[in-house]
Nucleic acid binder design. Sequence first.
DNA 1: ATGGACTCATAACCAACGCTGATGTCGTGA
DNA 2: TCACGACATCAGCGTTGGTTATGAGTCCAT
Lengths: 317, 317
Amino acid sequence: MSLTHVPDLDSLELLIRVAATGSLGQAAVEHGISQPAVSARVQSMERLVGFPLVSRSARGSTLTAEGALLADWAREVLHAADVLGAGIASLRHDRLTRLRVAASLTVAEYLLPRWLVRLAASHPDTAVRLSAMNSAEVAVAVLNGDVDLGFVEGPRVPAGLDSQVVGRDQLVVVVPPAHPWARLRRPLDPATLAHTRLVQREPLSGTRTALELALRSHAPLAAPLLELSSTSAVRGAVAAGAGPAVLSDLAVRDDVAAGRVVAVPVRDLDLSRSLRAVWPRGQRPTGSARDLLTITRTTELRGSVGRSRAQDGKMAP
Amino acid sequence: MSLTHVPDLDSLELLIRVAATGSLGQAAVEHGISQPAVSARVQSMERLVGFPLVSRSARGSTLTAEGALLADWAREVLHAADVLGAGIASLRHDRLTRLRVAASLTVAEYLLPRWLVRLAASHPDTAVRLSAMNSAEVAVAVLNGDVDLGFVEGPRVPAGLDSQVVGRDQLVVVVPPAHPWARLRRPLDPATLAHTRLVQREPLSGTRTALELALRSHAPLAAPLLELSSTSAVRGAVAAGAGPAVLSDLAVRDDVAAGRVVAVPVRDLDLSRSLRAVWPRGQRPTGSARDLLTITRTTELRGSVGRSRAQDGKMAP
DNA sequence: ATGGACTCATAACCAACGCTGATGTCGTGA
DNA sequence: TCACGACATCAGCGTTGGTTATGAGTCCAT
């Protein structure tokens, strides 16, 4: 493979323009540069390939026999380059209009929908593909480039990612209206909570691990009363009187308001979690990912909103 | 067609090397540049196309999905560029080993043969194609690019050409040994020559026009005694006793030495002509044309040797 | 845990290239 | 013979892409 002695794409195109117009000056105009620039470029091409390409005269310029031959080969190169250019344009377009998002369950279920509605309103031709998965899987998907933007919950930002806090979630203890805790006059004791059998999600769910983390000083926790595979199932079980559960505030807000379940305050226990948008370290979101990020910032949030290091550092706004 | 957003050939090759080696640093070594240069080039490509191409990690770099796609298209472009490169190399090779020469008859007959022998000795694989034609035709052939080097005779350099004097020819008056002029005690008078019927070449031959130019103050010249189509025919006619002729010194030197004809001095008449190698203005001969030119300089010449403006100016030696 | 080896990114500097705008040279055609 | 058109040259300048030196983060082995 010897790419030495091969002029660059721009010069090849220029040569073909010279062939087509029969004039260096004309070619210069079409190419948007000055006539001396074309003259110099053609000369440097001739120096590069080692033989004259253009036959100049006072009445214009024509390609030499060798120049014409070279131009034929150059047309092939430029054609391939056009295909490449079209491919690049298409990828860029995709990136602008197609948005792949991975989100942890809580975010996917309770926050993303309204953001996506706003995104659809402001950017109607954006095609969104949303995948719900747990936070660790989200991090992997983002790092792999499988998605353009991820949303995770939890106190820590997964390694290799930059992030921005887009909300704060509060775990709340909910009980059936008939449950004794529904009538407590003082906040619940954390130890009591730890030693009570609860309706739970599966072991590795974000909600459950967050609870276990918050109660780690009271370990071991009581075994689950029930173990269900979705948040709604847990909500339903509590409402049906199965027993207490710890769920995201976002998930039970409606149930609490409707009186189907009762929220029980707990003292001395931080059950809040950051919800973060994440993207590969150093690669600021662009296109519709950026649009979505903007929407998460401008949508009214419950709880405090902070900014991660990625936003505090030297990166441009 | 939009070549904007299309990286240059060198960068495309670099990207493919990154894909192959899985490391920016490795690719840098293969490419013969430094690692930071690769890092910067990849970044600028990403800025150009508008999306990330390479996924960097502490354990190396791999192409993103988009990068891999782009690399596939790039391979097509580079393949076409390789074809182009091979074509250029082939044309350059031709130019180095194939030498097309056009020469005026005098040069072709009396000087070029020994130069070509020397050229063949020093560059055995050079294929020479020699065309004999008159000086005006030589100039056209050189300007058209039909030949790599031309040789003309006459006092003036044809327009649009650079030249170098490679010899000097002297026209001499020759007569049969039995002719009265063979025994003159004083140089011949130009007027006498002008008014004597001579054995001549055809009207537009270089030798005849040179003679007519030199004798223009004595016009009109006497009509030809005989009009023959080749120098050798004229030589033969003179030797056979037909009458006087004016021929190139180079052509009759052997005949004079052998006593077949007698050279007659002429007073007050400059019958010398420059013999010049010519090439398109500004395009110094390269390859075997250059080799031949060198040989014409280093071969012992009869008469004085000068250099034209092309050699006196700022052009490199 | 700690140091070394490896990755890539950044900084500071420098040379070369390519463009511009003005001017020069040459051939052509009225 | 003159004026126009096409190309070449020149000087100046900004951008680009290169270099070396250095920093920061990750992985691995001791």
